[in-house]
């Protein structure tokens, strides 16, 4: 139980996927304009990451290792992630067209999102058990969502601010991301 708790703390704060490991930066910059869409994107990523990690763990342990097919790891994992993203895309389009519109290109981009593939590969590398993998993936995606929503909150406030012209838009977003990362660096070393 304690390990699971530590995994959550570790993935959400200490080794935050976006702000400490710099994985999955493209939706982090792209969908962090408004809190609403950021939350929606975060939910999609939580779903995709958790399900993808659990499926890839099973594939790794019951397919790849017994048949000595470890060299197919990347293509197998990408296949699973791509199918899952496709499923989420259909689901979001049906349930919430507004969210589908505002996520735009970034929803299919989860397919090749390094954060999702990163979770799948990292859990294998760390040799985690099934439950630990689930918690690791959930925590990671939670950390991703946290970073995304924090960023969106700050960027929404920045919209109102009188920003010098050269800083407006993407430049300011990157500066903000840097400062946010700086803040998260304060957690480093807390959990190994």
């Amino acid at each position: 139980m304690q390990t699971l708790f530590l995994i959550i703390i570790g993935t959400v704060f200490v080794n935050n996927f976006v702000l400490a490991r710099f994985l999955g930066l493209c939706p982090f910059m792209g969908v962090s304009r408004r809190i609403e869409t950021a939350t929606g994107m975060g939910m999609a990523v939580i779903f995709v990451m958790t399900v993808a990690a659990s499926v890839t763990w099973n594939i790794q342990n019951f397919l790849l290792i017994p048949f000595h097919l470890e060299y197919l790891q990347t293509i197998m994992f990408i296949l699973v992630i791509a199918s899952l993203v496709q499923l989420v895309e259909m689901f979001v389009r049906k349930v919430s067209p507004a969210l589908y519109q505002s996520l735009g290109i970034f929803l299919p981009l989860i397919t090749t999102n390094c954060a999702v593939l990163g979770v799948a590969l990292l859990t294998v590398q760390k040799g985690l058990g099934f439950f630990q993998t689930l918690v690791f993936a959930f925590g990671s995606s939670l950390g991703f969502t946290l970073a995304l929503v924090l960023m969106a909150g700050i960027r929404e406030t920045e919209e109102m601010a009188d920003v010098p012209k050269p800083f407006k838009g993407t430049a300011l977003a990157f500066v903000t991301a840097g400062l946010l990362s700086l803040a998260f660096m304060g957690f480093s070393g807390m959990v190994k």
């Binding site: 594939i59 397919l63 048949f67 097919l69 197919l72 293509i75 197998m76 296949l79 699973v80």
Partner: peptide, 9 residues
């Protein structure tokens, strides 16, 4: 096995 497993998936 590689072909079968990938195709199957």
């Amino acid at each position: 096995t590689a072909v079968i497993s990938l195709t199957g998936l």
